[in-house]
Design a protein around this nucleic acid. Structure first.
Lengths: 237, 237
DNA sequence: CATTTATATTTATCCTATAATAAACCTTGA
DNA sequence: TCAAGGTTTATTATAGGATAAATATAAATG
């Protein structure tokens, strides 16, 4: 009794994720207003041609990310925007899928400017031996790719570099940024690849400071990188 | 066929949340190792004395927060710590419940130091008229309570003040911090209430700068507040 | 009018059956 | 022996229907 249309349209993911994605789209786009009660389970099951099981798992998923809240007799309500966890990589993916991403990109850059320099400082202090090895290996690749430029490869290694910085902070609260960052990098053409420029110098400064354990220098170097980062229009989708 | 023990032990929440909380506890405490396959659905259903439906909803909840990943035939695997979304208020709640929170508190303070000054700066630039009214009203209360001191009330209004700063940034990525902050404030006795000192002067500086639209001053004022914030032992739970 | 009780609606939970998936285990043929 | 390809099997995914719990609303009651 599957509806093959949904399977195709929603890529290859599991059914409840596809349903969750579609409901999320309606919420994030404003098509379903905040504080509004969405249709009852039965109605939604028919709309999506899925069982109650799948639908309810979708709703649980969205509830977990702060988009919905269910009560018996009342129904399932769209929570206000304040509760949406934009620092969840999956939710961010859904946001990006809406298109119109210049604002998302700008807001993310504003977040990076706050958080990343401090992350670099913490990494300089707290990175483990193994993390330093990983960071080192990644920077080697950056260096190589900056000389034999390839936009796609640069994006990947650039992403990995910054991801490792977050993972090396030794602070649990910085870990989620790693995934959010990856989601953003994968969705947008890296701004720093503009005109083939790879900011290798700025990255080297961050890398060296972290390896040297110089927190202040790492912080400043990362701030400089982000200051030079000039906002590019997203080109994906 | 409910198991009343679980109902009592896990407070009044819905069943699948109670199950999720218990599984989360095992994962967060390390009792269930990273990358380990947890017991199959049937086994867990028996362990918790719940139906597959409830159990599966629990697993979906944990999957959404990056703690688990399920595959047919393979089983459900505990994801590595990098994937745990510590910036999810519910997950943070579970972390705090483990006790041993001095580290959590320190790490959170490190995050605040990075993010909050910038949030204050953004709020100074972007707060709407309505948000300024709310912030104003909240600061009035702070002022009053600082003179007629009450630790509990001060915690609440202090929390509300900083929450409003995050909500006033006009940046989606800053919104989740509001909820995380509230979770932390509710779980720990506010550090700033030490010896009846309420940092009202520091808060006034932040408040005034935001109301005046002076981003730089707001940033600096918030940084000063956090610099003076001296780490107290958590005393709750 | 206030307060309690009854009712109806919706989600919550339980249960069982079937489908999809992929790892592990067999063939089978060179 | 061993590699390719099909088969079995264990596990999650999905379906669907039944019962329980919760609660907003309406009705009854004092």
């Amino acid at each position: 009794m599957h509806n093959p249309f949904i399977q195709i349209a929603g890529s290859k993911r599991s059914l409840h994720v596809q349903v969750a994605r579609e409901i999320a789209r309606k919420i994030l786009s404003g098509e379903a207003a905040q504080n509004e009660i969405i249709p009852s389970e039965m109605v939604l099951c028919e709309q999506f041609s899925v069982s109650r099981t799948a639908l309810r798992e979708a709703i649980k998923l969205l509830t977990s990310k702060g988009l919905l809240e269910s009560k018996p007799k009342v129904g399932t309500r769209v929570k206000s925007r304040d509760n949406w966890n934009f620092l969840d990589a999956q939710l961010l993916d859904w946001v990006i899928d809406l298109g119109d991403n210049e604002i998302v990109y700008q807001e993310f850059l504003a977040l990076r400017k706050a958080i990343e320099p401090e992350a670099a400082a913490l990494a300089a202090k707290n990175a483990t031996a193994q993390q330093r090895i990983l960071l080192s290996a990644t920077f080697q690749q950056m260096d190589y790719i900056s000389k034999n430029f390839d936009a796609q490869k640069w994006m990947e290694v650039d992403m990995e570099f910054h991801r490792l910085v977050f993972l090396s902070t030794g602070n649990s609260f910085y870990l989620p940024f790693a995934n959010v960052l990856c989601t953003m990098f994968r969705s947008f053409i890296s701004h720093s690849s503009e005109k083939g420029g790879t900011c290798i110098g700025e990255h080297r400064a961050i890398y060296s400071a972290i390896m040297a354990g110089d927190a202040d220098k790492a912080r400043e170097a990362n701030a400089i990188l982000l200051k030079n980062t000039n906002h590019r229009l997203p080109t994906s989708n």
